[in-house]
Write a protein that binds this DNA or RNA. Structure first.
Length: 598
DNA sequence: GCGTGGCCTG
DNA sequence: CAGGCCACGC
C-alpha cells in the first residue's frame, strides 16, 4: 500500500515560494540575476524587445564576437513604442521598463545593443504591434454573454455584473453580430491573408536577424518558447480575479471560446476554400508545428504549456521552463483564432518570452531541473503543448514517488482559488503573478490522489473527522484554510455518497417486503457493502474493519426505520440519523498517521 | 464573523 | 469531486 513517498521536498519548496528565497534549489532560469524582470515588463508593446533581448543576450553569452556595428534607424524605435501602445496596456506599459527603454539595454547592462539590431528590432516590433491591432473577435463577446445569460436569472448580483460587463463591450461587437455571412467570410478572408502576410514578414525579419547574427548557431539558438493559445479577452480579467469560482470560469470560458472559434472558422473557411495550411514557422519544434497544423485537436483550453527540459544546454542562458500561463493574459485576440494560430503562438512567444513570470518565483519543484529523468532524450527546443488533461488535480494518476518525475499533469492543473490561502492579498495586488503562484502553490502542496485514497480509507473508521484529526493524519500536508476545507469537503462528499447508498438500500429493502429491521444485515457479501467498498476502496487492497460493517448496518436500520415510519416526509428527517451516526466514529489506526502510509 | 455540515448542481 | 449556497452554532 505504499503508493508514494511524501513529497516533503516539494512542500518545503513551496514555502519558499512565498517567503523564502532559495536560489540554491532554483533553476538558472528562475534566478533573479539572470532574467530578473518584473512581470509587467512583458507588456504588449515590447514583446519583440523582450524576445530579441533574450536572444541576443543568449548569443552574447555564446560568442561575444557576434556583434554588428552598422547603424541605421534605431532612433525610431522609441517613438514607435510610445505611439502605438494600445490604451488597455498603457498602465502596464507605463510601469515597465519595456518599450524603447529596453531597446538598447541588455539584461546585464554591460553590452549595449548595436544600432543595427535595435533597428531590426524596432521594425519587427512594429509588425507585432500591427498584429496586435487586429480587430477583436466578436465570438468571445458572444460566448461570454451567452455564458452569463444562462445563469444570471436567479441572482440580482449576477445580473448587475452582467450589465456592467455588457456596458464595457465595445460597440462594434454588438454591430458585428448583425453582419451577414458573406461579410463575415469576406472579413475572415481578408484577415487571414493579412495575418499570413504579417507573419511572413515577421518571420523574415526574425530569420534575418538570426542568420546575420549567427548563421552557424541558427538552428540551435532558437529561443525556447512556451506558448499558450486562448481567446480570453483581457476585458474579463478583473471579473475573473474577483470571481469566486475562478477555476471553473476559466475552464468554461476557455473551452467554449476555443471550441466556438475552432468550429466556426473551420466551417466558414472550408466553404470559402481558403488555404489554412500553416505558414512555415520559424520555430523548428515539431510539436509546435503540429499544434499549429492541427488546431482542431485542441478542443479544450490549454491550461498550460510546457517546455520540456533540454539535454545539452549550450549555456546557462538556455534554461528549462515548465510553467503554466494564466489564461487571462492574452493582451489581444484575433477574430478567428484557428487560422491565426501561428500568429497567436508567435504572439505569446513574443509577449511572455521563455523566461517570463518566474523572476520572482523561486518555487519550482526540483523535478524541473534539467537533470530530471524526464528530461532525458528530449530534443532541443521541444515544445509540448498539452491540453488540459483533467479539470482536477485529483485525477487518479498516482503522483510519482520520485521528485524528478513529477508529472506535467500535476503541474498544470490549476485548482486553488485566488482568494484561498495566504496569497489573496498578493493576488489582489498583482493578478498576473498571483495566478501563477497560486497554480504552483497548489501543485506543490495540494492534496494528491494518494491523500484522497487515504482519506477514503479513513472513512471506514471516521465519518466525521475533526480538523485536528485531519491534521494529525495528514502530516505531510501543509494545512491552510483551503486544504482543510478541501479535506473536510472530501469527507462531506464521502458521507453524502454513504447516506445516499443507505437510503437507497433501505428503500429497496422496504420495496422487497422486508418487514423486520432485524432482517436487514450488512455483510461483506452484501450489495451495499460492495457499493461502498467500490467507492472507498476501489482497489480492494484494504481490509475494511468489521466495525464499519456494524456502522453501516446501524445506518441502514436507521434509514429503514425512518422511512418505514414515514419520517421521510419531514424535510430534515435525515438529521436525526446523522446525529446517531456521528457518534459511531472509531479511532483511526496509528498507521494512518505516517505520511508515507499508502 | 468564522467554521462546519448539508444540499444541490455540474 | 468541487463549488455555491444556506443554515447553524460558537
Amino acid at each position: 500500500m505504499n503508493l508514494s513517498l511524501p513529497d516533503q521536498n516539494m512542500h518545503n519548496s513551496s514555502e519558499g515560494c512565498i517567503e523564502d528565497d532559495k536560489p540554491d534549489v532554483m533553476l538558472p532560469c528562475f534566478r533573479r540575476n539572470m532574467y530578473d524582470e518584473p512581470l509587467a515588463s512583458y507588456s504588449n508593446g515590447s514583446i519583440i524587445s523582450q524576445l530579441l533581448r533574450k536572444t541576443i543576450h543568449s548569443k552574447r553569452a555564446l560568442d561575444e564576437n557576434h556583434f554588428y556595428l552598422s547603424s541605421s534607424t534605431a532612433a525610431d524605435s522609441g517613438q514607435e513604442d510610445q505611439s502605438s501602445v494600445s490604451s488597455k496596456d498603457s498602465t502596464v506599459e507605463a510601469a515597465s521598463p519595456s518599450g524603447h527603454i529596453s531597446a538598447g539595454t541588455s539584461p546585464d547592462g554591460e553590452h549595449p545593443m548595436t544600432d543595427h539590431l535595435q533597428a531590426k528590432r524596432a521594425r519587427v516590433e512594429n509588425i507585432i504591434r500591427v498584429m496586435a491591432g487586429s480587430p477583436n473577435g466578436k465570438q468571445h463577446g458572444d460566448s461570454e454573454r451567452s455564458d452569463t445569460e444562462a445563469r444570471d436569472t436567479r441572482e440580482a448580483r449576477e445580473a448587475y455584473r452582467e450589465n456592467k460587463r455588457k456596458q464595457r463591450l465595445p460597440q462594434h461587437q454588438e454591430h458585428s453580430s448583425c453582419s451577414t455571412k458573406d461579410e463575415e467570410c469576406h472579413k475572415l478572408k481578408e484577415q487571414l491573408h493579412s495575418m499570413q502576410r504579417l507573419l511572413r514578414q515577421l518571420q523574415e525579419k526574425f530569420l534575418q536577424v538570426y542568420n546575420q547574427d549567427d548563421p552557424e548557431h541558427n538552428d540551435r539558438d532558437e529561443t525556447e518558447i512556451a506558448v499558450e493559445h486562448d481567446t480570453l479577452a483581457e476585458s474579463t480579467e478583473s471579473r475573473y480575479i474577483k470571481s469566486q469560482n475562478l477555476q471553473e470560469t476559466l475552464k468554461q470560458e476557455l473551452s467554449r471560446a476555443v471550441n466556438e472559434c475552432v468550429d466556426r472558422v473551420f466551417k466558414k473557411v472550408s466553404s470559402t476554400g481558403l488555404d489554412l495550411s500553416p505558414q512555415p514557422c520559424m520555430c523548428s519544434s515539431p510539436d509546435m508545428q503540429m499544434s499549429a497544423q492541427s488546431p482542431q485537436d485542441q478542443t479544450e483550453a490549454l491550461s498550460l504549456v510546457v517546455r520540456k527540459p533540454t539535454v545539452t544546454p549550450l549555456s546557462s542562458v538556455t534554461p528549462t521552463v515548465k510553467r503554466p500561463y494564466p489564461v487571462h493574459q492574452t493582451p489581444f485576440q484575433f477574430n478567428y483564432s484557428t487560422p491565426l494560430h501561428d500568429s497567436q503562438i508567435l504572439e505569446h512567444l513574443l509577449k511572455y518570452g521563455p523566461h517570463s513570470n518566474f523572476g520572482g518565483l523561486p518555487c519550482m519543484p526540483p523535478s524541473m531541473d534539467r537533470t530530471s529523468p524526464d528530461s532525458v532524450d528530449l530534443p532541443w527546443d521541444t515544445i509540448t503543448m498539452r491540453s488540459k488533461v483533467t479539470s482536477s488535480h485529483l485525477s487518479h494518476h498516482p503522483r510519482p514517488s520520485t521528485l524528478g518525475a513529477v508529472t506535467v499533469d500535476n503541474l498544470c492543473l490549476p485548482h486553488v482559488k485566488i482568494e484561498c490561502g495566504d496569497l489573496q492579498s498578493m493576488a489582489e495586488r498583482n493578478p498576473y503573478m498571483s495566478l501563477n503562484i497560486s497554480f504552483h502553490i497548489n501543485d506543490i502542496e495540494g492534496l494528491t490522489p494518494s491523500h484522497l485514497k487515504k482519506a477514503k480509507l479513513m472513512f471506514f473508521y471516521t465519518r466525521y473527522p475533526s480538523s485536528n484529526v485531519l491534521k494529525t493524519f495528514f502530516p505531510d500536508v501543509k494545512f491552510n484554510r483551503c486544504i482543510t476545507s478541501q479535506l473536510i469537503k472530501w469527507f462531506s462528499n464521502f458521507r453524502e455518497f454513504y447516506y445516499i447508498q443507505m437510503e437507497k438500500f433501505a428503500r429497496q429493502a422496504i420495496v422487497d417486503g422486508i418487514s423486520e429491521v432485524k432482517d436487514i444485515t450488512v455483510s461483506r457479501d452484501s450489495e451495499l457493502f460492495r457499493a461502498l467498498n467500490m467507492h472507498y476502496n476501489k482497489a480492494n487492497d484494504f481490509h475494511v474493519p468489521d466495525r464499519f460493517l456494524e456502522v453501516a448496518e446501524i445506518t441502514l436500520h436507521e434509514f429503514y426505520n425512518a422511512i418505514s415510519s414515514a419520517k421521510d416526509s419531514d424535510p430534515s428527517w435525515k438529521k436525526a440519523i446523522y446525529k446517531v451516526i456521528c457518534k459511531l466514529d472509531s479511532d483511526v489506526p496509528e498507521e494512518f498517521k505516517t505520511s508515507s502510509y499508502l
